[in-house]
């Protein structure tokens, strides 16, 4: 337990320096997220990416954390704009791979993030890997477009393990559903 704490201390210090954000044990402060929750469409071809960034929180998040598309083990990997929990990438899995011995949950909530390199928005399925206790590495928290749990389809606090062999949460993944 103490070892875990020391790790987390060092981890969060690193993350703090990198992003100059306040970082908590469980929550990584990501900043912003997609406001588009079914009420309006995202413009397909934004006239000005800067202008879009001012209006679109998913874009603003990507800008604020300097989102990148190469390292899925960092909280500022572009898909994690609304991810909540420990990254499967740091636990022997990946954003679309459950670690050995865990069980992918068929259920999830679906959000969306902006890819900083092509300026396009992608639907992301935030599926949990389940069946054994937490893998306590790489805690990240994004809240892009995330709503309270009375709107479950848009909430990331829920243990999205319905349908897995057990409802025990192991880690969080972020699979791309498609390009909008």
């Amino acid at each position: 337990m103490a070892k875990g704490l020391q790790f987390m201390d060092r981890f969060f210090e690193r993350m703090s320096r990198r992003t100059a954000q306040q970082v908590s044990r469980r929550h990584f402060v990501s900043g912003l997220g997609a406001a588009m929750v079914g009420a309006t469409f995202l413009p397909v071809l934004p006239v000005s990416r800067k202008a879009q960034a001012a209006e679109d929180p998913a874009a603003a998040w990507a800008k604020q954390v300097e989102a990148q598309t190469k390292d899925p083990r960092a909280c500022n990997y572009w898909r994690y704009c609304s991810s909540d929990g420990y990254l499967c990438s740091c636990c022997g899995g990946g954003p679309a791979t459950c670690p050995p011995g865990s069980v992918p949950s068929p259920t999830s909530w679906v959000g969306s993030c902006l890819n900083p390199d092509d300026g396009k928005t992608y639907l992301i399925a935030y599926r949990d890997c389940c069946g054994k206790d937490s893998c306590p590495k790489c805690a990240c928290l994004g809240s892009a477009g995330e709503k309270p749990a009375y709107i479950p389809q848009l909430n990331n606090d829920i243990i999205w393990c319905f349908g897995a062999s057990s409802m025990i949460y192991h880690c969080s993944s972020a699979a791309i559903v498609g390009q909008i």
Partner: peptide, 26 residues
């Protein structure tokens, strides 16, 4: 698609139509 994993795995992603997006999100 500029994403390390999509390229590594060679994943073809669907282009989601508005009505499909509504189904996806909701």
């Amino acid at each position: 698609v500029p994403d390390v994993l999509v390229r590594e795995r060679g994943t073809w992603l669907p282009k989601v139509a508005p009505v499909e997006e509504d189904y996806s999100r909701n």
